[in-house]
């Protein structure tokens, strides 16, 4: 019984069952790798987070902005240079060291980003994330690719056979094939694994309330790196040096960020003081009949925490 000899409706049913089985297998393998339970990844390095979100080059971009913010690099238009030739020893992370060494003399930022030592340090971040199951290893994509090739090949063979027999009513088969290819493409781990995506989502949720801050140069380097790592360089567009960042990385200048979609707890935040006391600078209520002040607080009036 050759399935390619099935008549139209029978073949469509056969193709649909095959497609569902292939999608189920690919999905199951993805979930098995990605852990379906709650995520609990230990991941605190901003450059690793940047790499997880946007790849090795994004880690370099974030590191560059952080070093500019810390005053260790200086930018002029599209070039960067270390403020001191020996500044590499002032930084601790390999990607920062590589950047500082490459910037001992003034260079175009694009040149620095593709310099082998910088690329190697950034790739090391990527490999670490692959080892930890947060980024997809190449083999993680194989199941989806095999599934896509299989579904496309089966449809194509049937179409060729149908055309050879003078039948041209293949529209439903083309639609079915299209749907399965899109679904397989969708569930394939092209970059982040399910666990990686969840971890990124968790960071966006945790730091959504911190995005609206105003920066002061040199004061906020650790959280500038963290926020740009999690949300992209758009998170730094209210930084005093955002003009420099935009000139260096114009492709990131159009990033809008997703601040509203990530949400914050602001609207519902309790202070540890009690409900109507406000207690967070973004709480709306603020103050109470028994004390409080400024943008929140006021725990002491009728009992504090």
């Amino acid at each position: 019984m050759n399935p390619f000899d099935f008549r139209g409706p029978e073949f469509l049913l056969y193709y649909a069952v095959l497609g569902v089985v292939v999608v189920a297998i690919v999905w199951y393998r993805r979930r098995a790798r990605g852990s379906s339970g709650l995520s609990s990844e230990k991941l605190a390095d901003p450059y690793e987070i940047a790499c997880l979100r946007g790849g090795p080059k994004e880690a370099v971009r974030v590191a560059t902005c952080a070093l500019l913010d810390r005053g260790l690099l200086r930018a002029e238009e599209t070039t960067i240079v270390a403020v001191r030739p020996d500044a590499a020893h002032l930084v601790g992370k390999p990607i920062e060291r590589a950047l500082m060494k490459e910037c001992s003399k003034t260079r175009e930022v694009t040149e620095v980003m593709s310099a082998p030592p910088v690329a190697a340090a950034a790739s090391e971040l990527e490999e670490k994330l692959i080892r930890r199951g947060l980024l997809a290893a190449p083999e993680g994509r194989i199941a989806a690719l095999v599934g896509m090739v299989l579904m496309a090949a089966v449809a194509l063979i049937k179409i060729v056979i149908a055309f050879g027999r003078g039948r041209y009513n293949v529209l439903y088969l083309v639609v079915f094939a299209g749907v399965f290819l899109v679904v397989l493409w969708w569930i394939a781990e092209w970059r982040q694994t399910l666990r990686g995506l969840r971890t990124l989502g968790d960071f966006r949720t945790l730091f959504g309330g911190s995005r609206a801050k105003a920066y002061t140069v040199g004061r906020h380097a650790p959280d500038l790196a963290l926020l740009t790592a999690v949300f992209g360089l758009a998170a730094a567009w209210n930084h005093t040096r955002s003009g420099e960042f935009r000139k260096l990385f114009p492709s990131s200048a159009n990033e809008k960020g997703k601040v509203t979609s990530y949400g914050t707890n602001c609207s519902t935040t309790w202070s540890s003081c009690g409900s109507s006391f406000g207690g967070s600078s973004c709480s709306s209520s603020g103050g109470s009949s028994c004390g409080g002040g400024g943008c929140g607080g006021g725990c002491g009036g009728c009992g504090g925490s």
Binding site: S39, S40, A44, G201, D202, F203, T205, L206, N265, T269
Partner: peptide
């Protein structure tokens, strides 16, 4: 963490807290 902020939080916020607790 103020617990009351999370009593009616969606599961993604609880999961984020778990991730925080891992750090």
């Amino acid at each position: 963490v103020i617990a009351d902020d999370y009593f009616e939080a969606p599961s993604r916020e609880i999961r984020a807290l778990r991730t925080l607790a891992a750090q």
